[in-house]
Amino acid sequence: MTTLLHDPPTRSTGTAPAVLVQDLVKNFGATRAVDHVNLEVTAGEIVGVLGPNGAGKTTTLRMLATLLSIDSGRAQIFGVDVAESPHVVRQLIGVTGQYASVDENLTATENLRLFGRLQGLSRHDARATATELLGRFGLEDAAGRPLRQFSGGMRRRLDLAASLISRPPLIFLDEPTTGLDPRTRGQMWDTIRTLVAEGATILLTTQYLDEADQLADRIAVIDHGRKVAEGTPDQLKAQVGSSTLILDLAEMDTEGRAAQIAGRVLGTTPFRSPEGRRLNVPVSDPGLVGDVLVALRQAAIEVTALQVTQPTLDEVFLALTGRDDEPATREEIR
């Protein structure tokens, strides 16, 4: 099976990271959109840039993709300076943006073949690569149909395929699943995982916490143009510091008493899970979980299932930025 990625480039420049960003700044008038951001992506990694709308993540990506000028700081792609050699950088990157890159009047095959030819592939190679990509992305049956007949998910997959036509060693994905339904999001995630498994380096922006959690080796959290945290998902979760005890109760009318008991034993404030029927109790000391169960049994409160989980990225995000990116789902029980 051939790889979707570029053959090794041809001239040695040492051991440059795939992306190196130092003190990157971008202003729009009086507004500082990106404020001294530093970031390093090693080849073969998938790094997620996570932040709410307007945090500066797309602006950062657009600077790296040579679409925006850099006001100050430095950015390099595989050791090539973005400001000094944008044309060389464009040979090293594939970009899938938030908007359609492909043309809806052409068929999927025509789009990919034309873009392949534009990027220097021979007629034969462009045809072969287009066929291979359409197969990889599950679009072979729709290859001859005009894009206006495609669903949103199919278009987005073709967008991604178009950014891979020249087999770039670095792929920028700007909110690749925004606006997609859950099933199509899952398909996109599978596609991205396949790329990573084949050795792609991916820099991904997203406002979905679960997306970053699912896909990224490392996550940089950006808020108000500043990088407020960086690490693996587990490292970021560890910053929040506590696990959560999740209790499934047999009788929901025991919820109030159960919350009181668990809160008293663990010294924290329980809250109801978004889907109901579950009681979530922050745990600072996992050794006390057994005490909670004993206390509940003594109070004749039946527990049907329990689990102790690490904090979610939602909690990390809330702790780092001081706000919840998604609509509030917590309901404290007092």
Partner: peptide
């Protein structure tokens, strides 16, 4: 983790005739 050790040949290094043809 691996690192990139190579980079593409810069456009300016290609012969003028090739660039014009491209």
């Amino acid at each position: 983790m691996s690192t990139a050790t190579l980079a593409p040949v810069a456009t300016a290094q290609r012969p003028l005739a090739v660039r014009l043809a491209d």
